[in-house]
Computed example of a mutant assay.
Amino acid sequence: MTSKLLLQAIGKYVLGLLLFGVLLFVPAGTAFYPNGWLLMAVLFIPMLIAGIILIFKNPSLLKKRLNAKEEEKEQKSVVVCSGVMFLAAFIVAGLNFRFQWFLLPNVAVIVGTVFFLLAYAMYAEVLKENTYLSRTVEVQENQKVIDTGLYGIVRHPMYSATLVLFLSMGIILDSLFSFGILLFYIPIIAKRMKNEEAVLEEGLEGYKEYKSKVKYKVIPYIW
C-alpha cells in the first residue's frame, strides 16, 4: 500500500459522496429525502468496508478498480452514455420526491434494498474470484482465464451484479421513472460486452474456448 493510492481512494470516495449528495438532494429541494439517504448508506458503507479490505489485502486490485480511463475508443462512448444515464436517473429521483409525482409502496423499497445488498455481496464475490478485474477493458500481463465459481455460470458475473445494483437503485429512491431510465443500462452493457469480448478473444489465450464452455454472458438460460 502506498500513500498515493490511499489518498486517491479517499479522494474518489469523498468526491462520490459529494456528487451523490448534490445530484439527489438539490433536485429534491431538501436534505430530508429519506430514500436518498438510504441509497447513500447501502452504497457507501459497504464501499468503505470493501475499500479498507482491499487497501490491506489486495492494493493492486484496488488500484485497477480506481483506474477508470478507457483506452478502447468504443468504451469511451459507453462511459459517456452511462454517465448521462446516472445523471438523469438521480436528478429525476430527486424531482420525483420533491413534486410527489409517483411514489412506490414501502414494501417495494424494502425489496429493492434487499436485492441491492444481495447484488453487492455478489459484486464482492466477483472481486474475490477475479483479481484481474480492472474497471477498463484490457488484457493484463500474465492474465489467465477465470472459469470457476461464478465465472463457471456466466462469463460476466460483474455485469450480472451491477445490473441488479443499478436497477434496484431506482426502486430504493422511490422512483419508477428513475427505474425506467436505469433500464438503459441493459443496452449499454450489451455494447460494452461486445467490444470487451472482442478484445479478450484477440488478446487472452483460452478465451475462445471459455466462450464455448460457458454459453451465457449475464443471466443463465436468458442472456
Results as ranks from 00 to 15, higher is better:
Leu61Asn: 01
Leu117Ile: 13
Ala9Cys: 05
Val139Thr: 14
Arg98Met: 08
Leu95Pro: 06
Asn35Phe: 09
Gln75Cys: 06
Ile172Glu: 03
Phe177Ile: 13
Asn58Gln: 09
Phe102Gly: 00
Val14Tyr: 00
Gly149Ala: 08
Leu23Lys: 03
Ser82Gly: 03
Leu183Thr: 04
Thr30His: 11
Pro157Leu: 11
Tyr207Glu: 12
Phe166Val: 14
Lys191Met: 13
Leu43Tyr: 13
Asn195Val: 10
Gly36Gln: 02
Ala108Ile: 09
Gly203Tyr: 11
Leu104Thr: 12
Leu54Tyr: 05
Leu165Gln: 15
Ala119Lys: 03
Met47Leu: 14
Val78Asp: 07
His156Lys: 00
Leu176Tyr: 07
Val218Leu: 03
Leu127Tyr: 11
Leu87His: 06
Leu200Val: 04
Met85Leu: 04
Leu117Glu: 05
Leu95Gln: 08
Val214Thr: 06
Arg98Leu: 10
Lys217Glu: 01
Leu182Cys: 03
Trp223His: 00
Met193Trp: 00
Arg98Ala: 15
Gly152Asn: 11
Val14Gly: 00
Thr136Arg: 13
Val22His: 03
Gly11Ala: 04
Leu62Cys: 07
Val107His: 00
Tyr123Met: 14
Ser168Met: 15
Leu87Phe: 13
Ala119Met: 09
Met158His: 10
Leu165Trp: 13
Val145His: 08
Ala41Lys: 01
Val114Lys: 00
Trp101Leu: 15
Ile189Trp: 09
Leu200Lys: 07
Pro59Cys: 03
Ile146Ala: 07
Val126Lys: 12
Lys191His: 13
Gly83Asp: 06
Thr148Ile: 12
Gly112Arg: 04
Met85Pro: 01
Leu173Gly: 00
Ser60His: 12
Glu70Met: 07
Leu48Lys: 01
Phe115Val: 07
Leu200Arg: 10
Phe20Gln: 13
Leu182Gln: 03
Val79Trp: 05
Ile91His: 01
Lys12Arg: 15
Ala68Pro: 03
Phe184Asn: 11
Val26Met: 09
Lys57Tyr: 04
Phe184His: 03
Phe56Val: 02
Gly203Ile: 01
Phe115Ser: 00
Asp147Gln: 10
Pro187Val: 04
Val92Phe: 09
Leu18Ala: 15
Leu23Trp: 03
Lys144Val: 12
Lys211Asn: 08
Leu66Tyr: 05
Asn58Ile: 02
Tyr132Lys: 05
Tyr216Arg: 07
Phe116Lys: 02
Gln100Glu: 14
Val79Gly: 01
Ala161Val: 10
Gly152Cys: 08
Thr162Met: 14
Tyr120Cys: 07
Asn106Trp: 12
Pro46Phe: 07
Met85Cys: 09
Phe115Gln: 02
Gly170Pro: 07
Val214Trp: 01
